[in-house]
Design a protein around this nucleic acid. Structure first.
Lengths: 214, 214, 214, 214
DNA sequence: TATGAATGAGTATTCATTCAT
DNA sequence: GATGAATGAATACTCATTCAT
């Protein structure tokens, strides 16, 4: 649905199939190169589509890119929902929740990091993309908030919305940055990955529990 | 010194002056455009240097960009040193230190954010740049570590190096991300800036104090 | 009939109607843009016809354009007939006739100038179009000749056909050019329009009366 | 000088030479095709210049075209001056002058018609071109006026400026149109060329002499 | 007949890099 | 050393035409 905003998305049949091939080809090329610097000729070749067909669905290369982004973010969104549901059933204490949440979210981000990198790359200067990312993050913040509030009595400070929002931000930014730096994040950072996750969980609980500056 | 790695840096006289003008012009254009999309023709014009001269010093446009990055990071490095020295003299408690450190570092990053954005932008896919950034961060981590270790007795867990390193990482990544998102971060995020800084300080102290998972 | 030359013109029913819509849509677009730079996709949309249908009737875009031209010229032709008939009833002297003819023809051309401009535009390099235009002009010449010959006794030189033909040419070319130059001829030349008409009438009579070079 | 308006015209040496080759190549291609539909790749090949070089001198293909136009019109202008001077020395009577002027101007236009056709083609919708053409015509009108005024005592009507201006217009438009119609004007109209010139001269004198409508 | 999705050749423009002076 | 004119490969986008349904 969000995908449709920037494109003329055919609903069925052959058209639909070639439309999918375009998006998939573009996504593949984005992952491969780590950025948006693919050419439409490449998309045409990889997706077995003609250049004209691409322009039949998208007004510009930028539109195509945005559609890929939207599709990926929709996928992530769905995964986030599933993730939160699963955590909901498990967590017992604030510490448990923090650990479960950080771990699940970290792995989710990691699994998406190859696609996410070129997206975040562009988000830096394309407001419409960063807005999408923000929406996604905000939704997750609200979901996390709902669950964290079950432990609200243990929070050290009054403004719960702010606490949850900033806790989430620190987790998200740290993980994103960790995964996003360098071109082969796995190789470079693998060693500390488990430690970072553990420490983020500890940080999260400790931060929420921390009393304000006296 | 790091600058010299990717260039033939003249040590004195007229050559030196035009070399400086190249770097300054390129930096100015990077800040202006928020990315690397300037042309060498522009650099030549702004820096009052011939294109040929640029290629006399640098093997490619990429080399020039890397040199600019290195020069900026060197400047930040020096500022970081000054910053750490000043904090050293003030801080009394762990909480004091955390607050002072986060605030000073946040403002330092913010003041450099216009130059830092295009650098971080490129660091996403240019390993040699992200390595430079890592060096700078690691040095700061060591400096912070030295100082934080004065409060080591209050730490909640044994592996102090890891604690300090990850605390710093969370602070740096969160701030960097906060400043880097969108094209006019000030306008977009100004509202939460003071809150973020405060919460990062609280988080930092709480994290260092937090006992490990029992 | 001339229209049929370049097309497969259906004679009746639904086909006929969509055929008309094509021509009308194309003409509308030609007038709107002042040239032939419309796309067949636009014609299809405006005329509520499929692109395939267009190619069912015309071999190429050029054929469609030529058919539009022919249809317009046919319309002009009919108007010319009506015009000449009306003049026939009024004119008393050669001067009267010249004035009446120039004025009527000038206004006729002016009223058609929006459609005529793109046609003349193309006639410059498309021989088949300029031929059509010539046919139309020649027919009018013959009509004018028939009427002018009533004043033949007042002509200054013997070759009446040549006289009439060239008088008409000067009138037609001057008016056409006057209307065709610039993109908003009305605005640009309005001021002299009445003067030009008056002078053309004077010129016409004077030219026909003029004795040959002695 | 007018050429320089739309271009960066080098003043000497090799640059100047390749600049000339660009203009000459473009002009050649314009004459060949009868319009502006040449490609820059063709210009590069014919003019033995790189595409980049073209963009070093001109901001766009349109600028190149305008420069060609300006150069041609400058050439015509010079020829017009020479032509008027020659006529000045010869003409004795109004009829003599008219004949001499029409003949000389007709031949001048005819000799330039291959280049003029694509220029007039574009003048239809490019105001900046039609303005150039108007300037050229107006200058000629003034020159003709100066000379015709020697016969002013023979004019049939008072507003001499208008008389001369409209006489010139009729001559110019008729000749231009005569030469401009069709793609091979020589072949098509050769037969009537001498007659048209003769009749235009007769028309001119007769028109200037004609008394106003009584 | 009628449709309109698919095709892909064709073109203006940019810009890092080279090299003759 | 220094210059900056010249190069040309590379790329987004258009649109007449085709053809499977």
């Amino acid at each position: 649905m969000t995908t449709a905003e920037a494109s003329r998305e055919p609903q069925q049949g052959r058209s639909r199939a070639s439309y999918e091939r375009m998006l998939t080809a573009a996504e593949k090329l984005m992952v491969k190169g780590g950025n948006d610097d693919f050419t439409l000729t490449e998309v045409a070749k990889v997706g077995k589509v003609s250049i004209g067909s691409i322009y039949l669905r998208f007004d510009s290369k930028d539109d195509l890119i945005r559609a890929v982004h939207a599709r990926v973010l929709a996928r992530i969104d769905a995964d986030q929902d599933r993730m939160m549901q699963k955590i909901d059933e498990q967590a017992a204490t604030l510490e448990d929740f923090a650990r479960a949440f950080v771990d699940a979210y970290a792995e989710l981000l990691k699994s998406y990091s190859p696609v996410l990198r070129p997206i975040m790359f562009r988000a830096i200067y394309d407001e419409s993309i960063s807005a999408l990312g923000r929406d996604s993050a905000e939704k997750l913040t609200r979901q996390a908030e709902t669950q964290m509030l079950r432990y609200a009595s243990e929070f050290g400070r009054p403004d719960h919305a702010r606490l949850v929002s900033n806790a989430f931000r620190m987790i998200y930014y740290t993980l994103a940055r960790f995964l996003g730096l360098g071109s082969s994040p796995e190789a470079a950072h693998q060693g500390n990955w488990e430690e970072i996750k553990e420490d983020l969980a500890i940080m999260c609980a400790a931060f929420l529990r921390a009393p304000g500056p006296s």
